[in-house]
Design a protein around this nucleic acid. Sequence first.
DNA 1: TTTACCATGTAAGGCGTTACATGATTTA
DNA 2: TAAATCATGTAACGCCTTACATGGTAAA
Lengths: 184, 184
Amino acid sequence: MSLRYAMLGLLSERPASGYDLMKRFETSLTNVWPATQSQVYGELGKLAKAGLLEVAAEGPRGRKEYAITEEGLAELRHWLTEAPRERMRRSEAMLRVFFLNILTPLEAVTYLSTEAERAAGRHAGLKELEAAVDWGDDPLSVNGRLALEYGLRFTAMYEEWARWAAEQVQEKSKRGNGTTGDAN
Amino acid sequence: MSLRYAMLGLLSERPASGYDLMKRFETSLTNVWPATQSQVYGELGKLAKAGLLEVAAEGPRGRKEYAITEEGLAELRHWLTEAPRERMRRSEAMLRVFFLNILTPLEAVTYLSTEAERAAGRHAGLKELEAAVDWGDDPLSVNGRLALEYGLRFTAMYEEWARWAAEQVQEKSKRGNGTTGDAN
DNA sequence: TTTACCATGTAAGGCGTTACATGATTTA
DNA sequence: TAAATCATGTAACGCCTTACATGGTAAA
């Protein structure tokens, strides 16, 4: 259900064709709400039929430029302010953690350490992005920076957690060996 | 694709019927990988046909108790250790942040403050859970605690981020008013 | 005997991914 | 004129949700 709002949001900045939108999904929204070409064109049709968008202009190669309508803007505002936010469920990462016990302690520690390194890598990537982008005072820069900061904090938190968890598993396996002699 | 591994993981602890699995999804996995009854029964059939599970016993009321096979266990281990982990994309929360500029600064600050409070509430809920559960030394307790700690760190991080972001928006709106006099 | 619980399934519809299919226009 | 880019669409398949549908067994 969020794809439509992503599209309304992008179109609230300026009108665009499906092709234009795709490019913007691939750049600014790729880390937040990726979408495929199929989806975008399909949703454009639905949104237009629902009156949330309109075809503002037609260009060469069958290009159709869509613009958000008053109704669409109202819908977007409603989503931002009043729509019930559903909390994030489903974490493949935590699902794996739930079943780490079927691995040996060594394997589990390796898994968690790798997760920590991956998080550190993503953190570094975001740092690079932060340095590379020319942050202005425009709305997109401001909001983009808020989201980037979230990414930085998230990856830092995840790395620390994974290192802590690896330690826990290691200590537990040592304790288990020391007190019972049971290496299983 | 993760549902099958959630089911294999649960069945690696002990055999269970679809009904049993549902209850375990609702309790231990509800915050990590929720599943519906439809899904569970459907996937049980697929997994059995693929040879990853087998019907170990049949009981009253048509009850079928499934057990994981050697092949299933190997598949689960493979998923834990070698399968390519895909990073979390799609954050509805960050999608909203990207379009906060269509709201007034006051509305945006309200939104972010509410997010902070919701995170604080979830954090408190997890703290309660931590206190309520009788944590033993069994694998499920150990792993459950790792996941819980992640939840605690995540909610704390998110609350702090949201408060920080609210501040950013507020300061920016003040600066904007002070220097240009433009209240838009 | 009635209610709660145990137990399994099917159907419809939305969302997402991958692949297929087609063609116009600009640029080298 | 060949290649890159612009531009839009359809089809098939899988996952997830909601709702519908059915019935057996145990406990009150």
